[in-house]
Amino acid sequence: MSKGVKYKNEKRLEILKTYKIYIGGKFPRTESGRYYNPLDSKGNILGNICLSSRKDFRNAVVAARSASVGWSARTAFNRSQILYRLGEILEGRRAQFIEELKIQGSTSAKAEKEVNNSIDRLIYYAGWCDKYQQIFSSVNPVSSSYYNFSVCEPMGVVAIIAPEENSLIGLVSVIAPVVAGGNTCVVLASESKPLCSVTFAEVINSSDVPGGVINILTGNAKELAGHFSSHMDVNAIIYSRTDKEELKNIQINASENMKRVFYWKSDWFSVKAQNPYKIRDLQEIKTTWHPIEQIGGAGSGY
């Protein structure tokens, strides 16, 4: 330390946040050790953000797959309560998210609206958990002596490339319907505005969402989209960005194991961005047949 400089006790030194990724309920840095420096509107560096690699994605898929059995087996009521709890915790950390959104370039008013809407969106989907089955299932009147019914079942592991803009409401809007329906997911957060995705991971971690149900990576879509769409143990992929060529490649890659591909584009602030059909998108319809015995029925001998 040079002699000429005198220490002034004007201001406490701020603890800077280390932004990590979220895999299997843990917060590792990327295995690759790489990082990138997104900038705010004034050109300041937002942080050393993990530039996730395909191996991070692979690890996240393993976590999502192993969480899938337990999560899909939860009762719908329980999933509903967990999503509600997620909303509760987000409510408690409103200030932090508003602050981060502002750092990422949002106005105060818009940031507040984005956080409020994100909380409300979680509450909205929390309520659907134990209702969409009743809307989308059916008993089918077949013309033979069988009881035949169709129910929704979660597809399994869903890879999500979250919206680039609207880094919180967009993120919440694509995650909530997926996990409300009993799927687990690996999400690539907004590349340019990654702060609140990582903070949202902390919200998830302090709620009752089991580890591995939601996994959040930060990084570059161009680098990762190919891996997201070609991984053979991913059942579906949601693409929420605007690059048509990227979407096309995703569709081509997805064909290899018949991943279901969804292109979700919306004004995420609008209530039109939320509906149970988004839950339905990530459901397979399973139809079951069983004989109906007719002994003792009208006019039947046996």
């Binding site: 002596s145 004989p291 015995e293 007719q294 046996y302």
Partner: peptide
Amino acid sequence: IDQVGTEE
């Protein structure tokens, strides 16, 4: 015995 299967 399953009756429906028997009738089929």
